[in-house]
Design a protein around this nucleic acid. Structure first.
Lengths: 155, 155
DNA sequence: TATTGTTATACTCTATAACTATA
DNA sequence: TATAGTTATAGAGTATAACAATA
């Protein structure tokens, strides 16, 4: 057994594998969020789209797709679903009529606020193993990791 | 506009959404790892299975499935693929012959070591936005989050 | 009767290709 | 010619259900 060697290098077992850790944490979030935002199609992803729309960060579908890390074809169906529910509307961009600006409706903003409230509990649940100060540190570091990754994707 | 209120509560925009952050980080890892461990079926997941086998932590397929957060039916096919390549073998558990212990072969251990080496670079790339000490902190906190999530899943 | 693992099937998610419209 | 968005189709990943072997 290699473990009997008690070498100086790290064990590299599953618990210390970054991919495993990220996958487990992400999965824990999605599973908890999925049955929390049941009033939104697409689960957490629908919430993220709505978040972008509410904050006026959905100036084109291509921009949203890039930011959410999904294909533009997937986004079409997702917006369709939210538009059918009257949560967002597509508006042609005056500057470039090929593009569509996605705006949140009043009801979309109301639903978003309700979801946000409930998702705060989900987020707290995911990081419940950490002390409040640690959780804040974790979120700050993770944010830098994520934002850097998004910057890299800009083709 | 709500942003014009300049309120005291956090903005709650996409950049601070835990689900978005985890998703983006996880996706960045998977995409980088996928074209790195091309000699393993299932990508990063195949590596994780091999990791469990190499460390003797694959005492039953049900245990692996729980630890990897995947369905036991998915695991069957994954093990099939690795077994065809001669990287692991299934052995009946003497204590409970319903169970199968998954063991890494010598070649499996060799392939695992090569993959581990390359994945270290992938991991470094994912956390490249952080200083070394910050990256260590991030990993330690993430590990506690992930391990807690796994404990919760134990039905 | 309950559990482990397998197989077949169906479902969901995502990506590819072809198309329209604008630039 | 290139880009934004849509649609139809195909593919990958995942889950559900029925089954055999064992406890």
């Amino acid at each position: 057994m290699s473990s009997s060697r008690a070498g100086r290098q790290p064990e590299a077992d599953l618990d210390s594998d970054l991919g495993w850790m990220l996958g487990v944490a992400f999965q824990a979030y999605v599973r908890a969020a999925d049955h929390t935002v049941t009033d939104l199609p697409g689960g957490p992803r629908g919430y993220q789209l709505l978040t972008a729309a509410v904050h006026g960060q959905a100036r084109s579908q291509a921009a949203i797709a890039q930011r959410l890390g999904i294909d533009r074809t997937v986004l079409t169906y997702l917006i369709d679903d939210l538009e059918k529910l009257g949560l967002v509307v597509r508006r042609p961009d005056a500057a470039d009529r090929r593009s569509r600006v996605v705006e949140a409706t009043d009801e979309g903003r109301a639903v978003w606020k309700r979801c946000r409230q409930r998702l705060r509990d989900v987020e707290a649940h995911v990081v419940a193993a950490l002390q409040p100060a640690e959780a804040a540190t974790f979120r700050a570091l993770l944010q830098r990791v994520a934002c850097r990754a998004r910057e890299r994707e800009r083709t």
